[in-house]
Amino acid sequence: MAQQSHSHGDQGPHGGKMQDVVGVHAELLTAERTLTIHLYDEAGKPVAASGYTASALVGSGQSRQVVQLAPGAENTLSGTAAAPVARGTSITLQIKNPAGRSGQARF
């Protein structure tokens, strides 16, 4: 089985951008006000989101908001922003894995 490697800006299985953070590959999807992160291992298999905590700093111009992301179904973390997230908006993900290790990724 070939090992998948993701560099900054790679596209994930759901069409979102992929970033490496705290030992997993995080795929970001936005739809209106909803932010969803899908977690995958090095082989591209889903990683259970239970035990992970995360927040996203969503910024556009002078406007900034922090969105708390909670584990959802299977390998997802999701949250709802106060306002719709415009295409091209800068998003910084802060994530902590079940072992307590934390990291950041920029989308």
Results as ranks from 00 to 15, higher is better:
M1R: 11
M1H: 11
Q3A: 12
Q3K: 14
S5F: 08
S5G: 09
G9R: 04
Q11H: 01
Q11W: 00
G12Y: 11
G12S: 09
G12I: 05
P13F: 08
H14F: 10
Q19P: 03
Q19D: 15
D20R: 13
D20V: 10
V22M: 12
G23F: 11
G23V: 10
V24Q: 07
H25P: 00
A26P: 06
L28C: 08
L28E: 04
T30S: 14
T30Y: 09
A31Y: 13
R33P: 04
R33F: 00
L35D: 04
T36P: 00
I37W: 15
I37G: 02
I37F: 13
H38S: 07
H38D: 00
L39C: 03
L39S: 05
Y40P: 03
Y40L: 15
D41H: 04
E42S: 13
P46L: 09
A48E: 14
A49S: 15
G51A: 07
A54Y: 07
S55G: 14
S55E: 15
L57I: 13
L57T: 12
G59A: 14
G59M: 10
S60G: 07
S60V: 08
G61N: 09
S63F: 13
S63C: 00
S63E: 11
R64S: 12
Q65T: 12
V66M: 13
V67P: 06
V67R: 10
Q68T: 15
Q68N: 13
Q68R: 14
A70F: 12
G72H: 00
G72F: 00
A73G: 00
A73V: 01
E74R: 09
N75T: 04
T76K: 10
T76E: 04
L77K: 11
L77H: 09
G79Y: 12
T80F: 03
T80W: 02
A81E: 01
A82W: 01
A83D: 02
A83S: 10
A83C: 01
V85T: 03
V85Y: 06
R87W: 10
R87G: 01
T89E: 06
S90A: 12
S90V: 11
I91D: 06
I91K: 07
T92S: 08
T92H: 03
T92I: 15
Q94N: 14
Q94E: 07
I95K: 04
I95G: 03
I95P: 03
K96N: 01
K96Q: 15
K96S: 11
P98R: 05
P98Q: 04
A99N: 04
A99Q: 15
G100N: 03
R101F: 03
R101I: 09
S102R: 01
G103Y: 02
Q104C: 01
Q104H: 13
Q104T: 14
A105W: 11
F107H: 05
